[in-house]
Design a protein around this nucleic acid. Structure first.
Lengths: 224, 224
DNA sequence: GACAAATTCAAACAGACGTTTTAATCTGTT
DNA sequence: AACAGATTAAAACGTCTGTTTGAATTTGTC
């Protein structure tokens, strides 16, 4: 359990439920979270969830929608990635994902919920993949494709995309373990920035080497 | 759900329970797995778990112990990593982890269970970290320290270790998503080998660049 | 074969869970 | 003030969970 985020409590029950549910779902995942915990945290009655959202899954879907829609988690598009050099775009992407994931506000919900879906898909899994993961995956592949001089759908591009995602998700989701294995890493903002820089440096080198290796190995039938 | 591993069914109940529990725990994690599912799979009565292992947690701890102890998951030490060049040692480490994690036998249990513990720590979490994760983390840091010319406990070494772990765990744990986002990636043995090679190439380049960057930055305040 | 211990079994238990019910309370309108 | 609809509240329901019980069955030993 972690301290509550310092966000003013909304006055109507529906909003309070979403706020509480976002926090608890992102901490514990869909299945492990209980409606009673959520309602206690929201100062609401147990029946409130069924009244306002039909059932637990309805609340979950709404939280996912809010965490990526309203607060513009999908502003990856608005980042104008295409207008920037690919390397810089990747740095922004990584830093953006990591800061959001390790923050305490609504923007942190989406990547944490996603990481729980990775480990244990819920009933809303197909929807989460379609609406949240897939577009972000595509943005990342776009940037990596430019770095590699390859199609976004290329196998090499995809491998690199998963290497980047894997690192970000790991630092975001494995905090309990990291806290034990590496006690001095407290995930303060400067430390998060350091991690983001590390992932970007590490990945950019990996990406460039991967591009070169492939070209070397295929030297002859090179495709772009 | 996935098809059962093609392993001969042990004859005594206790062994059958461990076999079934290992499979189900590694698929669903400690909390989501039910004792009734496990017993059905083991052709055993529900009370058998409590008779042979005291309770569900006792069975879980035993599965963890077996998956890393008996079948020598901790043979990272026996791999004679120190006798090999650091880069080759890293390749072996990555390929070994990935093959085990994506396989179907007992050796696959441990990394999958670990990834579930990352996303949602169980009551056995401290024990799993101490006995399983920590020593493997140390082995990896040892190899990376040699590559970087740094202490195993150094922050840079640790960052690189987490970058490697993140990639391996991601490919091992995020298969449901990868199946949707990347349908042609079927995780056949040759594809797993390709992934292992990619992670190793990618990471080795990242590690070397990280080492260089740090040296550069500390010598002349030069930034990339 | 007889006995005691070990093991298995069906059945039930207590608790937590999501959900529903029914009544009470609040809110806005006339 | 009076009414209708929206919202909240307490309590209970049915289901699933891990666990326990106590009898039945198997196993090992003499």
């Amino acid at each position: 359990m972690v301290a509550a985020p310092a966000i003013p409590v909304p006055d109507d029950t529906r909003a309070r439920l979403i706020e509480a549910a976002g926090f608890i779902f992102s901490e514990q995942g869909y299945r492990a979270a209980t409606v009673r915990d959520i309602c206690t945290r929201a100062n609401a009655n147990v029946a409130a969830i069924n009244y306002h959202f039909r059932d637990k899954l309805g609340l979950y879907v709404e939280v996912v929608r809010v965490s990526m829609g309203t607060h513009g988690e999908h502003d990856l598009g608005q980042m104008q990635l295409d207008a920037k050099p690919a390397a810089e775009a990747l740095r922004l992407l990584i830093a953006g994902m990591l800061e959001r994931a390790l923050g305490r506000d609504r923007a942190a919900w989406y990547l944490r919920i996603m990481s729980h879906e990775l480990a244990q898909p819920s009933e809303a899994f197909p929807r989460v993949v379609d609406e949240v993961i897939s577009p972000n995956y595509a943005s990342l592949r776009g940037v990596l494709g430019r770095l590699l001089g390859r199609e976004p759908g290329d196998d090499i591009t995809r491998l690199c995309a998963h290497s980047v995602i894997g690192q970000v998700v790991h630092f975001a989701a494995a905090r309990p373990v990291i806290n034990i294995l590496w006690p001095t890493m407290k995930m303060t903002p400067p430390q998060v920035a350091q991690i983001a820089k590390h992932i970007a440096d590490f990945s950019l080198a990996g990406i460039r080497a991967t591009g070169l290796n492939i070209v070397k190995e295929n030297s002859g039938k090179r495709k772009i």
